[in-house]
Design a protein around this nucleic acid. Structure first.
Ligand SMILES: [Mn+2]
Ligand SMILES: [Mn+2]
Ligand SMILES: [Zn+2]
Ligand SMILES: [Zn+2]
Lengths: 140, 140
DNA sequence: CTATTAATGCAACAATGTTGCAACTAGTAT
DNA sequence: ATACTAGTTGCAACATTGTTGCATTAATAG
């Protein structure tokens, strides 16, 4: 049977009006299979064995997918970006959890309300970046 | 008159039981003068002219001051750490604001309540990292 | 099928932070 | 004051992560 994630990935890419290249399809397919947000390195590893893909291309595809809002990027204190597919649940702004032990990152649902922080006068709110940290179920 | 911030810095360092070196004093003094969280590079610039200080030493002093909780470190999407002195107001956990235009970072007071996000079963909360982004008063 | 334009691979680069180790120095004991 | 010692520093080399320029290749339109 053909990889059903690759089929889905191809459809998503075509729908947003982009060129359907094997790199884009394979990378988005990898992200669609993952429950967690994963790093550039982890994506590279999951692509091993198959036809090679340059790491610069991987960076550029990830940027493209992020701009097209097919995936989103999670920043972290370890200075490594993590990426996750935008399933419906996570297409809006949301918080993330990062395990202090194994560094795994998952998406959370809620986001605190604007009344929970207050900006100085004259400051304009645009977005929020929230990472809750602690221990995941495996590391607890 | 002697630099009052250096006097304060020296006292803080001595109080926490660390060796009082000129590097530590000068770096903490710089951070005490700043309203905002500033980067390693920005600290370097403010130390120019005086007796030179190796950038590795700067990294190590910043780490030491952070561990001693005399300053705190702010992570950011641009992969650059910013540091800020722990004035009383900011000695507890708190959120930060980063300007999307000029990249300036300030400390906020409030932090959302734990009921504003929910972790999966088995996950253990430890800390929170919140950055609100938007435009500062100068850039608005 | 061909032309056009976007995407890719490769090499070099940039930015930020880290490690190992010898030399130095602040604090302390004599 | 002098010597001792552990903590601190400077330097060089390195590591990691991401970026840029440019020639080549491939996807799509006609
Ligand atoms: Mn997410
Ligand atoms: Mn702060
Ligand atoms: Zn974990
Ligand atoms: Zn600004």
């Amino acid at each position: 049977m053909p990889n059903t994630f690759e089929t889905a990935a191809e459809k998503m890419i075509r729908q947003c009006g982009g060129r359907v290249t094997t790199g884009r399809v394979r990378i988005l397919a990898v992200l669609l299979t993952e429950q967690q947000a994963i790093t550039h390195r982890e994506i590279e590893q999951r692509l091993l064995g198959k036809q090679s893909l340059d790491r610069v291309t991987l960076y550029r595809v990830l940027e493209w997918l992020t701009n097209k809002q097919l995936i989103h990027k999670v920043v972290s204190d370890d200075r490594v970006w993590r990426f996750h597919a935008n399933h419906e649940l996570h297409s809006h702004q949301h918080a993330h959890f990062k395990c202090n032990s194994c560094a795994s990152v998952i998406c959370l649902d809620k986001l605190p309300n604007e009344r929970d922080w207050s900006l100085p006068v004259g400051y304009q709110f645009q977005e929020i970046e929230l990472t809750v940290k602690g221990l995941c179920a495996k590391c607890v």
